Simulated assay, not measured.
Amino acid sequence: MLDPTARALLDAPLARTAALLDRPGITPDRLTGANLVLGLASAAAAAAQLWLPALVLWLACRLADGLDGPLARRRRAMASPPAPPGDAGAGGFFDITADFVVYGAGVVGVAVGATAGSGASWLPFLAVLLAYYVNGAAFLAFSSIAERAGRRLDDGRSLSFLGGLAEGTETVLVHALWLLFPAYAGPVAWAWAALVGVSAAHRMWAGYRALR
């Protein structure tokens, strides 16, 4: 829901930062790799109840994730001949799979840290993981089938994204909220699971309608 607004605000600053980072030793895939390593480190820190380091690592991993796309698009635009806007190839595959790993690991890390020694239930975090699973299946299936059916939604990203209530911006904010207020991680997880679940149902409906 907030992604269009966030992209409008952040696209230009991220593009300028990507231009500064455009050096031979820095590649989009290496930024994606940094995103993956930082995200897993954040999850490990959360599991160890090192909440502030986990938050810093989480924000750093999201910054790396925000920069790999602009750098890749810059490199494609400067190629001779320029590559098609949606031609992300292996880099796009690496990016989306790294994000799935980071998101899932983040939920598990917070669940471990927030419930350790308290007897609190893992159930809200399992609900979040289930909602992530259904939501991811819906938009990945839509992207694949839309590509084959010639109904690709091209906004410059590597996949055809169906909008929803819960998107990347909301995910960044909720995971940060967990790390800022771990004592309330369970109730936040219930609310987040419900929101992602509604978003998944909407994507299933919207994707079906778009492909008919």
Rank of each mutant, 00 (worst) to 15 (best):
M1F: 14
L2W: 11
P4A: 14
A6S: 10
A8G: 14
L9V: 14
D11C: 01
L14Y: 12
L14V: 02
R16D: 13
A18K: 10
L21C: 06
G25F: 09
T27K: 08
T27N: 05
T27S: 15
R30Q: 08
L31E: 00
N35Y: 02
N35K: 01
L40I: 15
L40W: 06
A43I: 06
A47T: 08
W51H: 04
L52K: 11
V56Q: 02
W58F: 12
L63Y: 03
D65A: 01
L67R: 02
L71G: 10
L71P: 03
A72W: 05
R74L: 14
R74N: 03
R74S: 09
A83V: 11
P84Y: 04
G91I: 03
F93V: 13
F93W: 13
F94V: 12
A98R: 08
V102W: 03
Y103P: 00
A105I: 01
G106V: 07
V107C: 07
V108F: 03
G109N: 03
V110L: 05
V110R: 04
V110C: 03
V112E: 07
T115S: 08
G117A: 13
G119D: 06
A120W: 09
W122R: 08
L123F: 11
L126A: 15
V128T: 00
L129F: 07
N135F: 06
N135D: 15
G136S: 13
A137M: 14
A138C: 15
F139K: 05
S143R: 07
A149N: 04
A149R: 15
G150L: 06
R151T: 12
R152K: 15
D155Y: 10
R157G: 05
L159E: 11
L162V: 10
G168T: 06
T169N: 02
E170F: 07
E170K: 02
T171P: 04
T171N: 15
L179C: 06
L180N: 05
F181A: 15
Y184V: 15
A185M: 12
P187A: 00
A189R: 06
V196K: 02
V196S: 01
S199M: 01
A200W: 06
R203K: 15
R203Q: 08
M204G: 15
G207V: 09
